[in-house]
Design a protein around this nucleic acid. Structure first.
Length: 493
RNA sequence: GGCGACGUAGCCAAGUGGUAAGGCAGAGGUCUGCAAAACCUUUAUUCAGCGGUUCAAAUCCGCUCGUCGCCUCCA
């Protein structure tokens, strides 16, 4: 089944056919570096990280470019507020961005260009637009002329008339048309500047993405991604600048991720209802956050709340518990190849697992091929987890059982490799969660272990009244004891 | 005001014409000294409402209600 993606440009799912067979050129708008990243940024970047990984998994040779916009009005404003140099602000938040993305387990893109390192390309592009009559100089500014670019607003499916009807923007008198936008901005006193044919100034927003994407990926490339909020004006303007300059189609497939909501409202700086990645990672494990972001389809809105995060944590814990169970069951055993397993020697649960495992990767690909449906993939994963738990519950005895359980583990890891989850050692992950939860307890680990010992002694002496008292005491403090043949362990409720 | 999206169980969520995946929470059972975990069974005759098209609709069309987004910086 071919890969199908939802293309904002056509408004439908289309079969994905790259320009060059076997190779994908993809550009995703990064961030303007003037503040910490919030969960919305986390979503966008995780989503495209998964798309990047899946395209490679599907056999494509992917060139992935994600930029830093490190010169912009907001950076200058922030620098002035904090009494810092603009490039100090940019440098600092580039570092913070990198840290956040690393903690979310993102792979590095092929290129991560910075706007300020591509001023020459930007000026060249603006010059071409002026020469071709698509842009005009007004004082030290250069504006793009939207009326001369016929397909303008095709991506957002609007018209200039509609936009003006609802316009709330103040019109700059130097613009020929109110919707014209700046390609180059004259430097005001004290502002950063670069020398240009139009005097000292800096790039406008939008132009850096056109210049950098075309430099690294060519004048026409396959995929351009970003949050839905970038459709207008950012991506619309990128298309206008790029296509007016080259006369060629800029991008074939436009992919946009949905917002992260708080109480059904978009998380955004202006509403002030945002959580930074840092803040959330203080409360939840980074893999839990990443897993949560994949529980909904990337184009749907995703409601962020402690409860939803906790549910994601419970789900991920269930998966890791199964993986840990598999590790325990197969530890030190070398399984024969699963292809040698004879189905008629298996129990019913084992046969079911064999069947499920056999089709798991196909179902995974089918879901991902349908516009990267990670939520459906997780459904398949849970389905497999339930089946393997059944096998674990009846005991993994013969070689055949070891083989099929190991095979399933490998397949879950393969899927996890694309989603960027399930990569930790199961026991280590569960321990990590436990430690994190334990940090909020009003009882120390030493105390818990001492009480467990006491209880074990009581149980040995068949003093169940005493042992139950200890268990209930711990339970009141959110400690759940788990007895097994191997001894007693504990977890935080 | 213009344009657009969405509304599936207590909660989260997949499903775009063939008779409602999956997770969390809940109930009952197996296991257990008792629990927990795990497993089994169970929880939407129904997909915001009302009409229409069709042999067949959560899926297509129309209207109504509700929520949200974009039109200004935003992932």
């Amino acid at each position: 089944m071919p890969l199908r993606v939802y293309n904002t440009l056509s408004g439908t799912k289309e079969e994905f056919v790259p320009i060059a067979p076997g190779a994908v050129k993809m550009y995703v708008c990064g961030v303007t570096v003037y503040d910490y990243c919030h969960i919305g940024h986390a979503r966008a970047n995780v989503v495209f990280d998964v798309i990047y990984r899946y395209l490679r998994h599907a056999g494509f040779d992917v060139t992935y470019v994600r930029n830093y916009t490190d010169i912009d009005d907001k950076i200058i404003r922030r620098a002035n507020e904090q009494g810092l140099a603009w490039d100090e602000v940019a440098g600092r938040f580039i570092e913070e961005f990198d840290k956040d993305m690393a903690s979310l387990g993102l792979e590095l893109p092929t290129h991560q260009p910075k706007a300020t390192e591509h001023i020459a390309e930007i000026i060249d592009l603006v010059r071409v637009l002026v020469e071709k009559g698509h842009a005009y100089q007004a004082g030290g500014d250069v504006y793009f002329c939207v009326e001369k670019f016929d397909p303008y607003l095709r991506l957002s499916k609007r018209s200039l008339e509609e936009m003006q009807a609802g316009a709330r923007i103040e019109v700059d008198e130097r613009k020929r048309h109110p919707m014209d936008f700046a390609l180059w901005k004259e430097a005001k006193p004290g502002e950063p500047w670069w020398e240009s044919p139009w005097g000292k100034g800096r790039p406008g927003w939008h132009i850096e993405c056109s210049a950098m994407s075309m430099k690294y990926l060519g004048e026409t490339f396959d995929i351009h991604g970003g949050g839905k909020d970038l459709i207008f004006p950012h991506h619309e303007n990128e298309i206008a600048q790029s296509e007016a300059a080259t006369g060629k189609q800029f991008v074939r497939y436009w992919l946009h991720n949905g917002f992260v909501n708080i109480n059904a409202e978009k998380m955004s700086k202006s509403l002030g209802n945002f959580f930074t990645i840092k803040e959330v990672l203080e409360k939840f494990d980074s893999e839990v956050l990443r897993f949560f972001l994949l529980t909904a389809h990337y184009r749907s809105p995703l409601d962020f709340s402690d409860q939803n995060l906790s549910e994601a944590m419970a789900g991920l814990e269930r998966i890791y518990s199964a993986l840990a169970g598999i590790e325990d069951a197969v530890a030190g055993r070398t399984p024969p190849s699963v292809v040698d397993v004879a189905p008629d020697e298996l129990s019913e649960a084992q046969r079911e697992l064999l069947d499920k495992a056999r089709t798991l990767i196909d179902r995974f690909r089918e879901a991902m091929d349908d516009d990267f449906n990670t939520a459906l993939v997780l459904g398949h994963v849970f389905d497999a987890v339930r089946t393997v738990n059944r096998v674990l519950a009846e005991g993994v005895k013969g070689d055949a059982a070891v083989a099929i359980v190991t095979d399933l583990r490998d397949k879950l890891r393969e899927i996890g490799g694309v989603l960027g989850v399930f990569g930790s050692e199961p026991a280590e992950f569960l321990d990590r969660l436990k430690k994190r939860k334990a940090a909020t307890l009003e009882i120390t680990e030493e105390e818990i272990l001492r009480l467990i010992e006491e209880r074990t002694a009581a149980r040995k002496a068949k003093d169940f009244k005493c042992s139950d008292e200890i268990r209930d005491y711990l339970l009141a403090k959110d400690i759940q004891l788990l007895d097994s043949a191997a001894g007693t362990t504990w977890k935080v409720k």
